[in-house]
Nucleic acid binder design. Structure first.
Length: 472
RNA sequence: GCUCCUAUCGUCUAGAGGCCUAGGACGGAGCCCUCUCAAGGCUUAAACCCGGGUUCGAAUCCCGGUAGGAGCGCCA
């Protein structure tokens, strides 16, 4: 049987980093077995679901390259089917009407808690052979409950956690349809997974306790339950559930932070999973090697430092043509026009060793594309002093006489000038940096000038000289 | 409270009874290289939650603690 997995977010907000990892696992599992990876939007809660959230989820999944193999399914479009199945179950006696009010249920729960018992439905309206049910109160819209088996146990043979046994006595008769007839979550999931032919349910481990109920419903329907794999959640650096106060939680925020999509995926796949001592995995490698059964049972903390390190590895080794569109995005975000300067690919090659993120790369490269708005104060004070400015003036003259503006020529000219003056290269390279880049950080000076071009270099050198003289 | 889950360096992890003097990676410290920032190279500190078993032998198996977490809705 061919594998079918699904990622099933509820559209109540952005795509969470934990959700992204779950989606990644679903995707990898299906890809490796040559199966399908589907997407289902669980939007039955119309109060909290929004179109904006649906869009945000797609946006995150698109950026990560985790688009589903088929058109996404929306639960709100399947109400007819759910009603049909509920009617079948009612007819088959695997479900029944319950007329308890919310107030009665609340009281029941409170009493049980007070008695230190696990809160559960007491079975008042559950039909049993030989049992006489109370008379239905007038004017009450009943809910529909699933008739859960009373005895025996159900074992979830989890692909990650191993076999987990639940006693049926711990499970009560959950509501599968509300008073207004709309179906509830646990029921929709079951029907959808069944109809979609899902073979492997890979989801967050906050769902383990739902699983035995879902299996029981599946069995009542005569369906074969899928395999389950419950992945532990991602914690913040402090070991507490990841939330907004930890910084970035939404996938899209990681784009803003300067991550490459595949680098984020690489970090995420290593969080809770490993393959020997390997740290770096291309998408192809992930597909080839990822194994859900080797996923860690315990939750993992998100370590921004390591995520950034992985990102840097990608920046350093990826083909510049893959990085270019992302750098373009970041430069534009800074209101810098990436077309007004050297080819992005060349800048990436020059910058990638010193930039761990695309934000850093964009900030350190903006001077290639936009005019300087000023000098870094400390750097200017240190390097654009009387000596520095004097040297720059002389050098500008030499450079303006150059017939060929190439890296080797520039290298020769600058180094020759330093030697002529009896100065270390740093003594001249640093003032140039501040003059052309506005700061004392840039790629090697010959490369920087070559990329910047003759016109801009000369103009900035002269501007720095003027600025320095005016100051003294 | 009840049910279920989990537990190796600060963090992510390797480890499927002897290969463990517990390995790798991030981060830390130190040194080297160097026109800046980096990158790179080398070195180094740092962990099996506790207690009982089982066994010739346990990080690995069992039991019990402890500590974390999840769930217990006409939410998903």
């Amino acid at each position: 049987m061919s594998v079918v997995t699904r990622f099933a977010p509820s559209p109540t907000g952005y795509l969470h980093i934990g959700g992204a990892r779950t989606a990644l696992f679903c995707y990898l599992y299906a890809r490796r077995r040559g199966g399908k990876y589907l997407l289902r939007i669980e939007d039955t809660d119309r109060e909290r679901s929004t179109d904006g959230a649906v869009k945000a989820i797609f946006e995150g999944l698109d950026w990560l390259g985790l688009k589903s193999d088929e058109t996404p399914i929306y639960q709100t479009q399947r109400f007819g089917r759910y009603k049909e199945v509920i009617a079948q179950m009612l007819a088959a006696g695997t479900a029944y009407h319950c007329y308890c009010s919310k107030e009665e249920l609340d009281r029941m729960r409170a009493d049980q808690m007070a008695r230190k018992e696990k809160p559960r439905y007491d079975g008042t309206w559950r039909p049993e052979p030989g049992k006489t049910l109370p008379a239905p109160p007038a004017g009450v819209q009943p809910v529909v409950r699933f008739k859960n088996p009373i005895a025996g146990e159900v074992v979830v043979d989890d692909l990650i956690k191993g076999p987990i046994t639940f006693d049926n006595r711990e499970l009560d008769d959950l509501i599968i349809a509300r008073g207004d007839g709309t179906p509830t979550y646990n029921f929709c999931v079951v029907v959808d997974d069944w109809d979609m032919g899902i073979t492997h349910v890979i989801r967050g481990d906050d769902h383990v306790n739902n699983t035995p109920r879902q299996i029981n419903i599946l069995k009542a329907l005569g369906a074969e339950p899928p395999r389950y794999a419950h992945v532990p959640m991602i914690l913040g650096a402090d070991g507490v559930k990841l939330s907004k106060r930890h910084g970035a939680v939404s996938v899209i925020e990681y784009r803003s932070l300067g991550f490459m999509p595949d680098a984020l995926l690489n970090y995420l796949v290593r969080l809770g999973w490993s393959h020997g001592d390997e740290e770096l995995f291309s998408r192809e490698k992930m597909i080839e090697l990822f194994d859900i059964e080797r996923v860690q049972k315990s939750p993992a903390r998100f370590d921004m430092e390591k995520a950034v390190w992985v990102n840097h590895q990608y920046l350093k080794t990826a083909d510049p043509s893959i990085v270019a569109p992302e750098l373009d995005w970041h430069l534009r975000k800074m209101s810098v026009d990436p077309t007004r300067g050297p080819k992005l690919e060349d800048v990436i090659l020059a910058q990638r060793e010193r930039c761990k993120t695309l934000v850093e790369m964009a900030e350190k490269s903006a001077f290639f594309y936009a005019e300087l708005t000023g000098y870094n104060e400390k750097d200017a004070a240190k390097h654009l002093d009387a000596n520095g400015v004097a040297a720059l003036g002389e050098l500008a003259t030499k450079l303006s006489a150059l017939a060929d503006w190439s890296m080797p020529t520039l290298h020769e000219t600058v180094n020759g000038f330093a030697a002529e003056k009896g100065l270390g290269l740093g003594k001249i390279a640093q003032p140039i940096r501040v003059a052309v880049a506005g700061m004392a950080i840039s790629p090697p000076i010959d490369q920087t000038l070559a990329l910047l071009g003759r016109e801009r270099t000369l103009a900035r050198l002269n501007a720095a000289v003027a600025w320095g003289r005016a100051r003294t």
